[in-house]
Nucleic acid binder design. Structure first.
Length: 274
DNA sequence: AAAGTAGCCTGGAAGC
DNA sequence: TGCTTCCAGGCTACTT
């Protein structure tokens, strides 16, 4: 589902088409998607002009002028789609912003896990999830990221998925970067050498960049802001390939739950310690 | 400090 | 065919 590369691609697409346009109306079709009093949300957003659209970790942020930020956490199935006409609500449409020029922005979310907020600077800063987000993996050196987890007793995969350690990594890119760097998901960070950790974060950067270049991964629900699918799913080496041969040693890929998530890996190629 | 689990939610796939 | 169950995923809250 949308992880860093997918949110980055969506953000770039929306920025191109939406910056400078003005929200006229707000229609909330599922109140549970709006994580604040809905009338406050609607009154804050209406009449404001979109000044920027950006990403922080997996959060999609729409800046509405000086002191208002609409945040979308897409979780598993959320989509934000820009339309050049008034959007017709679909079964899973949760929110629609009508624009003054006749266009619209639709928040579509099959499983209702997604969360939308409209926050002032102060509220954004006070939001614990946002305040404690870790560094952006593409704007931080692999050495610095390695240093951040060095010596920790936790399993490396749970650290990769921890948004306060590094922002934006989810199950797909965790499994892919672990495989590509030869590190086992259950390895404890403290059992890995500095070089192995640097290699892991170097591979993480490579895999995130490649995924952005390929417009993200499309499995199940993901499409970009123009409704198009990405293609990085064709480059997966282990994610979702339980029981298939390891691309490296041809052994059968293993699968188990690590850090509460399904994890696919090669027991032979991925090491538990140095 | 870290790990496990339930809960949130839906629909597609798998099993019977 | 039609039913039930399982699973996926990010994150929080709670327990061990």
């Amino acid at each position: 589902m949308p992880e860093l590369p997918e949110v980055e691609v969506i953000s770039r697409g929306l920025a191109r088409s939406l910056e400078g346009r003005t929200v006229e109306s707000v229609k909330i079709l599922n109140h549970g998607s709006v994580k604040m009093p809905w009338h406050v949300f609607a009154s804050r957003v209406a009449g404001r002009t979109i000044s920027a659209i950006r990403r922080r970790g997996k959060l999609l942020i729409m800046d509405l002028g000086e002191n208002l930020h609409v945040t979308f956490h897409l979780k598993m199935t959320g989509r934000v789609i820009a339309h050049e006409e008034a959007a017709t609500p679909q079964k899973h449409t949760r929110l629609i912003f009508g624009l003054t020029d006749g266009g619209s922005i639709e928040f579509h979310d099959t499983r209702k896990f997604g969360e939308v907020r409209a926050l002032t600077d102060e509220e954004l800063g006070d939001w614990k999830f946002y305040r404690t987000l870790g560094p952006e993996p593409l704007e931080t050196s692999p050495e610095a990221l390695a240093e951040a987890v060095s010596g920790k007793k936790a399993r490396i995969k749970s650290l990769l998925l921890n948004q306060s350690v590094v922002a934006g990594v989810g199950n797909i890119y965790a499994d892919e970067s672990l495989f590509r760097s030869g590190v086992h998901p259950t390895a404890k960070a403290c059992d890995l050498s500095h070089d192995s950790l640097v290699k892991l974060f170097t591979e993480l950067q490579k895999v995130l960049k490649q995924a952005i270049d390929e417009n993200g991964s499309s499995i199940r629900d993901y499409v970009d802001s123009g409704g198009d699918a990405g293609s990085f799913q064709n480059s997966f080496k282990v994610y979702g390939k339980k029981g298939e041969p390891c691309p490296c040693c041809q052994g059968i890929l293993d699968c188990s739950t690590v850090a509460g998530r399904t994890s696919t890996y090669c027991n032979k190629c991925q090491k538990l310690c140095d």
